[in-house]
Design a protein around this nucleic acid. Structure first.
Length: 448
RNA sequence: GAGAUUGUAGCUCAGCUGGUUAGAGCGCUGGUUUGUGGCACCAGAGGUCGGGGGUUCGAACCCCCUCAUUCUCCCCA
C-alpha cells in the first residue's frame, strides 16, 4: 500500500478552511461587483508562448511546463537530446504551461476579444495560479489571486476607486490596514534628481528593500550596483522626505517627477471627497519590483501583525503591447487571499457562524420514525432551508455526538410520541433547552 | 539555484551515553448510560520508528545514500 501524499507547496482545504476561504472570496467579490467589475475566467493552462518572456528570466524558470501528450520525444532534436540541452529542448517537448499570474492571461484575453469588448473594460478574476518556486512561509506552488483591473483608460478616477475597493474590502473583512501609495514617476524623478536616470530599475529594486533592510543596507545595495556615492546620498536624502509638497522643489528639473506628484495629488484629492475607513498614506519608499508598472503603485499592509503585504497593484501603460495591441493603459490591484486567510486566522477574526454546516439535524429511533423523519426533513428543504437526517435510526448518543461534531445548533428528535402527535422535539444544542413544535413552526423558527 | 531543519500511532510529540515486549496526550471503537452530545471513569484497536544500505552481539538512536517536510537567501503573493 502506498502512503498518500501531496506535491510540494500544495495543500488541501478541508470543509472548515474551504468555508472560510469562500467567505473571503465572496467578500472581496461583492466589493468588485459593487464597483462595476465583471467576472472573467481563463484556463489553467496557456500556450507557453503566451507566458514566456513576460516575467523576466527568473519568472520563466518558475513556470510550470506541461509535457506534450503522446510520444513527446519523437520530434525532439537528437543532438539536443544527446547534449541534454534542456533549455533548447523545451519548446520541442512542451507547448503549454500553467498560468503564472492572472494579469498576462487577462491581457491575452483583451487582445483576442478587442472587437467585442467595451472599453474601459473592468474585470475581476479569482483563480489559482502556479509557480515552481521553493515553498516557504506564506508561499506556495499553487495559490489564489484575486485581481481587479481596468484596461483602456488612463483616468486617475480608477486609481481612486481601486483604493476605495481596498478600503471597503478590508473593512468588510475586519482587518485594519494601511494602504500605501506611491508613483513610479516619482521614483523616476528621484533617479533624475540624483543623476542616475539610466539606473532607474536598479535603484527601484534597491529602494523596494528598504522595509526589509536598513537604509545602510540600501546604500550598500546601491553601491554594489556601481552607483556613485554622491548619487546614493542624493537618493537617500530625498527618500527621507515624507511629504509630496516638500518634494516639488527637488524635482524642479524632472518633468516626470513633477507629473508623478500631480497624479498623486489628484488621487488624494478625489479620495478626500469620500469617507474612508482605513489610513491611506503616501510612501515614497514603496517601489514594487515588477517592471511593468509606470504610474501609481499600491501596497496594503495590515496594522496588527507583521506579515508581508496582503495586497498590491499599480498602473501599467502598455500591458497588451507584447500581444500586438499597443497604447492601452491599465491599472489593477490584487488581494493576497492566502495571506489574508493567515491574518484572519491568527487574529481570530473569522465570523463565528462559519463553521456551522447545517442548522438542523433530525434523529430517529427505528424504521418507522426514521421514514417519518425523512418526510419532515424533505419538507424543511422544500421550504428552502438546509437540513440533515442521520442515516440510521438508533442510539441517540451516537447521533448527538455526530451533531456536536458537526456543530449543528438544533437537533430534532423524532420518536413514536412525536410521530403520533405531529409535535417534533427540538433541542437547542447550545442552551440544552427543548421545545415541541410542528414542522411548519420549525420552518418558521429556523427562518428568522 | 544556495544553505539549514525535521521525519517515531490518525494528530502533536517523548524516547537518557546504542541494550531485550517503542511510550504519552488528544483522537478513534466499545462500555458504564439501548429517548439526549460536550464531562468523568473503564476497556480496546492502532506503529516494518520516511525508504534503502552499512557499522555492531544488538540500531528509533551511529555512518552513507535517497525521498519528503519546514525555514532562510534569491525572487515574489
Amino acid at each position: 500500500m502506498q502512503k498518500p501524499s501531496l506535491p510540494e507547496g500544495t495543500r488541501d482545504f478541508g470543509p472548515e478552511q474551504a468555508r472560510k476561504r469562500a467567505w473571503i472570496f465572496d467578500t472581496i467579490r461583492s466589493v468588485f461587483v459593487k464597483f462595476g467589475f465583471q467576472p472573467l475566467e481563463t484556463p489553467a493552462m496557456e500556450n507557453l508562448s503566451t507566458l514566456t518572456g513576460k516575467y523576466g528570466d527568473e519568472g520563466d524558470q518558475l513556470l510550470f511546463k506541461i509535457l506534450n501528450n503522446g510520444d513527446f520525444l519523437k520530434d525532439a532534436d537528437p543532438e539536443l537530446l544527446a547534449a541534454k540541452n534542456s533549455a533548447k529542448l523545451l519548446p520541442q517537448i512542451s507547448k503549454r504551461g500553467l498560468r503564472y499570474d492572472l494579469t498576462v492571461p487577462f491581457a491575452r484575453f483583451v487582445v483576442m476579444n478587442r472587437q467585442t469588448l467595451t472599453f474601459p473594460f473592468k474585470r475581476y478574476q479569482i483563480q489559482p495560479v502556479w509557480r515552481a518556486d521553493r515553498p516557504q512561509k506564506g508561499r506556495y506552488r499553487e495559490f489564489f489571486q484575486c485581481d481587479a483591473d481596468v484596461i483602456g483608460s488612463d483616468s486617475l478616477l480608477y486609481e481612486a476607486e481601486l483604493t476605495q475597493i481596498y478600503d471597503e474590502a478590508f473593512a468588510k473583512l475586519g482587518i485594519p490596514v494601511v494602504i500605501l501609495i506611491n508613483n513610479r514617476k516619482i521614483l523616476f524623478g528621484i533617479a533624475e534628481a540624483a543623476g542616475i536616470a539610466d539606473r532607474f530599475m536598479d535603484m527601484t529594486v534597491a529602494i523596494d528593500k528598504l522595509h526589509k533592510i536598513s537604509p545602510d543596507g540600501v546604500r550598500q545595495e546601491l553601491a554594489r550596483k556601481d552607483i556613485p556615492a554622491d548619487s546614493i546620498e542624493k537618493v537617500m536624502k530625498i527618500l527621507a522626505n515624507p511629504s509630496l509638497e516638500a518634494l516639488r522643489p527637488l524635482f524642479a528639473n524632472s518633468e516626470t517627477g513633477l507629473k508623478g506628484i500631480a497624479e498623486l495629488e489628484r488621487v488624494f484629492h478625489l479620495l478626500g471627497k469620500t469617507p474612508l475607513k482605513n489610513e491611506i498614506r503616501f510612501d515614497i519608499t514603496l517601489a514594487r519590483g515588477l517592471t511593468y508598472y509606470t504610474g501609481c503603485i499600491f501596497e496594503v499592509a495590515n496594522k496588527r501583525i507583521g506579515m508581508g503585504s496582503i495586497g498590491g497593484g499599480g498602473r501599467y501603460a502598455d500591458l497588451t503591447g507584447v500581444f500586438g495591441m499597443p497604447g492601452l493603459s491599465g491599472v489593477g490591484i490584487s488581494f493576497g487571499a492566502d495571506r489574508i486567510y493567515d491574518v484572519l486566522d491568527r487574529l481570530n477574526l473569522f465570523p463565528e457562524n462559519l463553521n456551522e454546516s447545517v442548522p438542523v439535524l433530525f434523529v430517529a429511533f427505528d424504521e418507522a420514525t426514521h421514514e417519518y423523519a425523512f418526510e419532515c426533513v424533505s419538507r424543511v428543504r422544500v421550504a428552502g432551508l438546509a437540513a440533515e437526517l442521520y442515516p440510521e435510526p438508533g442510539k441517540l448518543k451516537k447521533q448527538f455526538e455526530y451533531a456536536a461534531k458537526r456543530n449543528v445548533p438544533y437537533v430534532v428528535i423524532v420518536g413514536e410520541t412525536e410521530m403520533a402527535s405531529g409535535m417534533l422535539t427540538v433541542k437547542n444544542q447550545i442552551s440544552g433547552e427543548q421545545r415541541n413544535m410542528t414542522v411548519e413552526e420549525l420552518i418558521g423558527f429556523l427562518s428568522k
